[in-house]
Design a protein around this nucleic acid. Structure first.
Lengths: 239, 239
DNA sequence: CGACGCATTGACTCCCGTCAATAAATGTGG
DNA sequence: CCACATTTATTGACGGGAGTCAATGCGTCG
């Protein structure tokens, strides 16, 4: 159940067998979620956090005019709302992009973890700081990168993160999202997203169609994106 | 020394006197920093976190073409790099916008805090989650808001945060930043920033000149910005 | 007083949004 | 398996917000 989470943690620090058991013991129930379902609404008091086991989800905020900004994409092994443990309610919504499987982690178990297991506490704290690091990189994308570079960057990031939990193919990955939603990640309209995707395809960099991403030229894509995975903290060291 | 931090914490949860002493005891040395100085460089191993006592700073990332994105502004009471405690090195730089006063908090003291004081640990964890919430709101600004709305939003946010630590006047606040740097927060060039500021001034919403921001029409500014302070979590409750 | 940083403005360009039409893919019921 | 509806992708035409380049003005300070 927590295998993907352990892969993510082990990429950042050593986890001993006791800790594996404790992490596994955090999970209460497991549930299935249909695609497109909003699973967390802003402002609602929280009593548990949700670990994504299978599928993909996203965090987003809606504007009054109907537009939407997606602020993060979630892959298996990610918590959707570990930050909700200390925030107590969210400032954003979370929605399933695909049918998904999730595990519930009651906040009282996390509280107990903070009382008894400081190293795991720091690791979980690290996970929320990693979320923030990704948010910062998205700020850079939205503020400074061109449409094409920002699109390329998103695909580089997702490839890296999915590969870490064994969900990527050698040349690409499944990314079941439409162009409207992709545009909502990138701060672009679906029309412009479509044009950017055509441009990247014609340049032999990326082919994204029908929910499948093929990295035609990974190195070229990284170059266009100015992608440096340092912000993903893929170095195992004591935390 | 830690008064502003305590103001920020008390706005979010009750702090008992023992905890005040522990927080005060986290601080090691205090230092002055001249304006424009980069105080933290990405990638450098960290052994302490830095609390901002006086002045303003920012987090930023530089692009290869010389452009820069500022991803956060810091006010007194903010940690510049509390996330560095678990990340161990930063993914961004931090620079002083003004002359500033900072306090060093050794990581080993924070580690001891995680071992002995779970409630304070959760509060400090909360602070980093608050950073992430602000990053998310900036993503929304950069992705969805127009230049004028995003500028208005930034000033609304800063007014709220500065007022919380007693650094705002009734009708505005000191914000010692030039239009180039302001543009780097907003993902715009300095030229366009200038035009947006003129527009907001002519509309009677905001007057920002020579490092001083006057909110001419706070309600109108909030309306233009679609500013909802919920993401700043200004509700005191057990964490 | 002169140098420098910063602010302001104009002219021009272009990336990207808007509006709209059409095609292609997907789903659904009979 | 077909007919139809719905969603999604694609493309064109047009306009506007924001970038670029460049000139000028202004405030500060050694």
């Amino acid at each position: 159940m927590v295998e993907a989470l352990l892969l993510a943690l082990r990429a950042r620090d050593a986890i001993d067998p006791d800790e594996v058991a404790i992490v596994a013991g955090l999970v209460d129930e497991v549930a299935m979620v249909p695609a497109k379902r909003t699973v967390l609404k802003r402002g609602v008091p929280l009593s548990h956090s949700i670990l994504l086991i299978e599928g993909m989800m996203c965090r987003y905020k809606d504007m009054r005019n109907g537009s939407r900004q997606i602020s993060a994409i979630h892959v298996p092994g990610d918590f959707l709302d570990l930050h909700g443990f200390t925030l107590k309610h969210l400032d954003h919504d979370v929605m399933a992009l695909t049918a998904a499987k999730v595990a519930y982690v009651p906040h009282d178990r996390l509280t107990r973890m903070t009382e008894q297991y400081p190293h795991l506490t720091r690791l979980f704290w690290f996970l929320t700081n990693l979320d923030a690091a990704m948010h910062r990189e998205w700020e850079v994308s939205l503020g400074q990168r061109s449409g094409a570079a920002r699109t390329a960057h998103l695909f580089c990031e997702l490839y890296t993160r999915l590969a870490l939990v064994g969900k990527a193919e050698p040349d690409g990955f499944a990314f079941p999202i439409n162009q409207t939603e992709l545009g909502e990640c990138l701060g672009m309209t679906s029309v412009h997203t479509n044009r950017v995707l055509r441009d990247l395809r014609e340049r032999g960099l990326l082919d994204f169609r029908r929910g499948v991403a093929k990295l035609l030229d990974p190195e070229g894509l990284k170059r266009v994106a100015e992608f440096d995975p340092a912000y993903l903290y893929l170095d195992s060291r004591p935390r």
